[in-house]
């Protein structure tokens, strides 16, 4: 007797980003607003990070609220309705539930039920991890329209007296819909991790430790700033170059480079490492928005579009990198 065989999903050749949405926290927080508790100054923060203001959301806004706004905009810009979405991927490290996944709550809020829904924990690389997964899901035939959201309310996770990372952080959400395409709209994803450096960007203590010791403060983030700077500045350039190579492109053939908005000096150093020509627009949204972790790349792209530095059809090299350590890069065609 011969065994029956499985009929696999019917693959589709190409995928593309179909629509983009973005939202920033509504509060504008200046360097002077936060310099006191870290014994710093506007000048020091600007010189060290390039940040002039960061955007933060009020206390009653959570990561799903931010996600919903960005997602609705992305779905509308894609010319779709929530019912057309069959997978929702939420990349976040600031949804404070072990279960359910924020993506399931978001899918219901949007009216995208019964879309498959799951969260990604890849910190500042979460958005580009999500794009890699959405691209694979669409091309494999396991999904038709995937909503990818990078959203963070980092202000729930900061210590005002912390000099390592808190003063960089902002809140926001960026979303895209990835769907089938008649041209290649997303290049191969070059990604990886280095868990041997898991403490380079870290939570001060675990939830278990917090539960066990009532004296412990609410967990917040810390980083080994110079060490992370060195890793990001000098190891992410080669990763971005590999993503370009994998897409069969040269630096002078793309229109924009959008790295994770961690620190302006990291952005400058990666641009230098890549040897990008001046014709390539560079995402520098960090100056006004701060570091919004998984949201930073789509927010920076939205800004380049709004400022007419890029337009539909342009090729954008994007790279996310952060706590894990983790990283992911790919080239996309702008919708």
């Amino acid at each position: 007797m011969t065994r029956a065989t499985i009929t696999p999903a019917a693959p589709t050749q190409f995928s593309r980003v179909m629509g983009l949405g973005a939202v920033r926290g509504e509060l504008v927080v200046t360097n002077d607003d936060i310099a006191g508790p870290i014994d710093s100054s506007d000048e020091w923060i600007r010189q060290r990070t390039g940040i002039v203001t960061r955007r933060r959301a009020p206390g009653d806004v959570d990561v799903i609220d931010l996600s919903e706004q960005a997602a609705r905009e992305a779905i509308e810009n894609a010319g779709l309705s929530p019912a057309d979405i069959d997978v929702v991927i939420l990349s976040t490290v600031t949804w404070f539930h072990q279960t359910p996944a924020g993506a399931a709550v978001l899918a219901d809020r949007l009216g995208a039920t019964p879309a498959a829904a799951f969260d990604i924990s890849a910190a500042c690389a979460g958005y580009t991890y999500g794009i890699g997964q959405a691209d694979a899901l669409v091309r494999s035939g396991n999904a038709r329209h995937v909503l990818v959201v990078g959203a963070e309310k980092m202000s729930d996770f900061i210590d005002p007296t912390d000099r390592t990372i808190s003063f960089l952080l902002g809140d926001g959400a960026g979303a895209v819909v990835v769907g089938p395409s008649d041209f290649p709209g997303i290049g191969p994803t070059v990604w990886g991790s280095d868990g041997s450096r898991s403490q380079a960007v870290r939570q001060t203590h675990s939830w278990q430790e917090y539960k066990a010791d009532p004296e412990l403060p609410w967990p917040t983030l810390r980083q080994d700033g110079p060490s992370v700077f060195k890793w990001a500045s000098f190891q992410m350039g080669p990763v971005a170059q590999r993503a370009l190579d994998a897409a069969g492109l040269r630096a002078d053939q793309i229109q924009a480079f959008v790295p994770h908005q961690a620190n302006m000096r990291i952005i400058d150093q990666i641009v230098k490492q890549l040897g990008l020509p001046e014709t390539v627009a560079v995402g520098r949204d960090i100056a006004d928005t701060g570091n919004t972790s998984a949201a930073s790349i789509p927010l920076a792209i939205e800004r380049l579009v709004r400022e007419e530095q890029v337009s539909s059809g342009d090729l954008v090299l994007q790279i996310g990198f952060g706590g894990g350590l983790v990283y992911a890069a790919q080239v996309i065609v702008l919708p």
Partner: peptide
């Protein structure tokens, strides 16, 4: 030289 420039010099 600040700590970030120092890391660039070291690299």
């Amino acid at each position: 030289i600040d700590s970030l420039s120092m890391m660039t010099i070291v690299t």
